[in-house]
Amino acid sequence: MLLEVKDLHAGIDGKEILKGLNLQVSVGEVHAIMGPNGSGKSTLSKVLAGHPSYQVISGSVLYEGKDLLEFEPDERARAGLFMAFQYPVEVPGVSNSQFLRLAYNEKMKHLGEEELDPLEFNDHLKEKA
């Protein structure tokens, strides 16, 4: 089992939004979560990504058998749990290539692989493009 959410209760500002959610995702599966506005889709993704404004009240989340809720947001991202933003944030003053390279190198560090310098990363980007 890749991701296992068990009886998850979570919310924001003291208001409970997820009231006992269960979900199991195995390797290679694609799941789409649908529901009306306010049913907790965003709350679930933010809780899984580790947004500091959301609180887990009870329940558990296992990711590759480990307690996901113990990890910091950046540790979750490097471990492979990734959240695509509906409204991506623009970070003023930081160029895309700087930002992509920093994120890429953090992932490489995590995997124990070599980091790329700006020139190497530029080549890498061209290959991918």
């Binding site: 990504a49 950046d74 959240m83 933003f85």
Partner: peptide, 26 residues
């Protein structure tokens, strides 16, 4: 902004510095 960078795998310290740099860079 900080959370966004964290979810891209940047450690908190680096993310904070990057945001501060961006602020000054303007």
């Amino acid at each position: 902004e900080l959370f966004y960078l964290l979810t891209r795998g940047l450690p908190e310290n680096l993310a904070r510095n990057l945001l501060t740099y961006g602020f000054a860079e303007e």
